[in-house]
Simulated assay, not measured.
Amino acid sequence: MPVLKQLAAGALLVSTTLFINACSKDDNQGKARIQVALTDDPGDFKAVYIDVQDVNVNYNDNDDNGWQTLAGFKKGRYNLLTLVNDKDTVLADAEILSGTIKEIRLVLGDNNWVVTNGGDSVKLQTPSGQSSGVKLKINMPVSGGILYKLLLDFDVAKSIHEAGNSGKYILKPVIRTILEAQGGSIQGVVLPAILPSSVLLLSGTDTVASTYSGLGGGYMLKGVAAGTYSLHYISVDPTLQPAVKQNVTVETGKVTKIDTLTLVR
C-alpha cells in the first residue's frame, strides 16, 4: 500500500509532545465548535468601521444572566465594506456546550466611523440603549462533535441613518443571522493507546483532514464535507502496522461513529 507507506514515514516524526497535547484535547470531543463570522451587505459609503469588543452566547431565556463569552474572540475594528460579495472574517472560533443557543450578543465599542463618498470621516453616534450589546435571536440547537458557522450579515444600508441634513450619522445595527452545520464529524477509538496514532481522512489519494488519538485512544475529525472516505491509522510506534478503514460515510450535521480499531504488530 504505497499511500500508507508514505504516510507512515511522516508519522514517525511525531514526538511524545503530541501525546501530551492529545490528552488535553480529548476532553473537548463531546462539545460542539462554533465559528462566528461577520459579513456585509454593501452601503453607500467608502468605508464603514465597526468597533467589535465582544461576542457572547446565551443558552437560556433569561436575558439577565447566562451570557458566555466565546473563547478565541478577535477584538478590533472591522471595515464592513471589505466583507462583501460572500467575503467574511471570523470573529470567534470556540468550543461550546451542546444544546439550544437562544441568543447571541455582539458588543460594540464607541469607535465606529463611516467614510462618506465625499471623503469625510464621521464618527457614528450609537443610541444609549445599545450599550449592553446588539442581541440577536438564534433559537437553534447545536450537537456535540459538530462544527457550526454562525454568519452575522450586517446590513449597512439599513443600519446607518443620517440625522437630517446635519452631516451626523446614527448607528442602529440591523443584522441577519445564519447558523449552519459545516459538514459532519467522525469519532472513534484506535488502540493501543500507550502512544498516539495519526488518523488521516483521505478522498482518493488526497488528505482532507487529520488528527491524532488522545487519552484512551479517542479521536474526532470535525467539519468534514459530506461524502465517502477512507480512514488511515498510523501509530507513533513503528512496530505497529498501519491500517485502513474504507467506505467511511459522512453526513452533514451528524457524527459518524467508527468501531474501535486495534493496530497489530
Results as ranks from 00 to 15, higher is better:
16 T>A: 06
17 T>G: 03
20 I>E: 02
26 D>M: 06
33 R>A: 10
38 L>R: 10
39 T>P: 10
39 T>K: 08
40 D>K: 05
41 D>E: 14
44 D>C: 02
45 F>T: 06
49 Y>W: 08
50 I>F: 04
57 V>C: 07
57 V>R: 15
66 G>L: 05
68 Q>M: 14
68 Q>I: 08
73 F>T: 07
73 F>D: 10
76 G>T: 11
77 R>M: 11
82 T>V: 02
89 T>M: 13
93 D>M: 05
94 A>P: 00
103 E>Q: 10
104 I>N: 01
116 T>A: 14
121 S>C: 05
123 K>G: 02
124 L>A: 05
127 P>Q: 10
136 L>V: 06
136 L>R: 00
140 M>F: 03
141 P>G: 12
154 F>R: 03
155 D>P: 10
161 H>G: 04
162 E>A: 15
165 N>Y: 14
171 L>F: 14
172 K>P: 00
176 R>M: 10
180 E>G: 07
182 Q>A: 05
183 G>P: 07
188 G>I: 15
191 L>F: 04
192 P>L: 13
194 I>K: 03
195 L>V: 04
199 V>I: 15
205 T>C: 03
208 V>H: 01
210 S>W: 04
222 K>V: 06
238 P>G: 08
244 V>G: 01
245 K>F: 02
248 V>Y: 05
252 T>F: 06
263 L>T: 14
264 V>R: 12
